[in-house]
Simulated scan of single mutants.
Amino acid sequence: MLPEIPAFAEHWGHSVVRCPYCHGWEVGDEPIGILTTGPASVHHTWLLRQLTDDLIYFTRGT
């Protein structure tokens, strides 16, 4: 289930992606935001760190 964030669902699969290896290469060398959903988000951060130096981590209180 997608979070209730304005425009999130509209961008799903295009500029909002789930898997850094399935979709991350398309956004490499660009700013990337990571929406924290739980402990696995830290792992995704390390994976995406291989693609860009410009990461923003959104914790949403988690």
Results as ranks from 00 to 15, higher is better:
residue 58 F to Y: 12
residue 33 G to L: 05
residue 46 W to P: 01
residue 31 P to C: 12
residue 16 V to W: 00
residue 60 R to G: 15
residue 40 A to E: 15
residue 23 H to C: 11
residue 10 E to C: 04
residue 45 T to L: 15
residue 48 L to C: 10
residue 4 E to S: 11
residue 48 L to E: 00
residue 3 P to H: 05
residue 12 W to A: 14
residue 14 H to F: 04
residue 8 F to H: 04
residue 7 A to W: 01
residue 42 V to S: 14
residue 7 A to N: 11
residue 40 A to K: 05
residue 40 A to R: 15
residue 20 P to K: 06
residue 7 A to V: 01
residue 61 G to D: 03
residue 11 H to W: 06
residue 20 P to V: 02
residue 42 V to L: 07
residue 55 L to M: 09
residue 7 A to I: 01
residue 31 P to Y: 10
residue 1 M to A: 08
residue 20 P to W: 05
residue 59 T to H: 15
residue 22 C to W: 01
residue 52 T to I: 02
residue 40 A to Q: 10
residue 41 S to F: 01
residue 58 F to Q: 04
residue 4 E to L: 12
residue 47 L to A: 09
residue 4 E to A: 11
residue 19 C to Y: 08
residue 7 A to R: 13
residue 27 V to E: 07
residue 32 I to W: 00
residue 15 S to Y: 02
residue 33 G to Q: 02
residue 6 P to W: 06
residue 62 T to N: 15
residue 1 M to S: 11
residue 38 G to I: 14
residue 19 C to F: 06
residue 1 M to W: 03
residue 52 T to R: 07
residue 37 T to I: 15
residue 20 P to H: 03
residue 5 I to S: 03
residue 60 R to I: 08
residue 27 V to Q: 07
residue 60 R to C: 14
residue 31 P to W: 14
residue 29 D to C: 02
residue 22 C to N: 07
residue 22 C to Q: 09
residue 15 S to E: 12
residue 18 R to L: 11
residue 30 E to K: 14
residue 25 W to M: 14
residue 20 P to D: 09
residue 11 H to E: 13
residue 12 W to L: 10
residue 59 T to W: 05
residue 27 V to G: 09
residue 22 C to A: 07
residue 18 R to F: 11
residue 61 G to M: 12
residue 12 W to N: 13
residue 12 W to V: 09
residue 60 R to V: 08
residue 1 M to K: 09
residue 7 A to C: 13
residue 39 P to R: 04
residue 14 H to I: 05
residue 60 R to F: 12
residue 38 G to W: 10
residue 16 V to F: 03
residue 39 P to S: 07
residue 6 P to A: 12
residue 36 T to W: 08
residue 22 C to F: 03
residue 53 D to S: 13
residue 34 I to G: 00
residue 46 W to F: 14
residue 27 V to D: 04
residue 2 L to M: 04
residue 47 L to N: 08
residue 33 G to D: 15
residue 45 T to R: 14
residue 54 D to M: 04
residue 10 E to W: 10
residue 33 G to S: 11
residue 12 W to R: 10
residue 1 M to V: 06
residue 55 L to V: 03
residue 36 T to K: 02
residue 44 H to K: 04
residue 10 E to K: 11
residue 19 C to G: 05
residue 2 L to S: 02
residue 16 V to H: 01
residue 37 T to E: 15
residue 36 T to C: 14
residue 3 P to T: 05
residue 51 L to K: 10
residue 60 R to W: 10
residue 2 L to R: 00
residue 29 D to K: 11
residue 30 E to N: 11
residue 34 I to K: 04
residue 36 T to Y: 12
residue 51 L to N: 06
residue 31 P to A: 14
residue 3 P to D: 12
residue 27 V to F: 12
residue 53 D to Q: 15
residue 61 G to E: 11
residue 14 H to P: 00
residue 11 H to F: 03
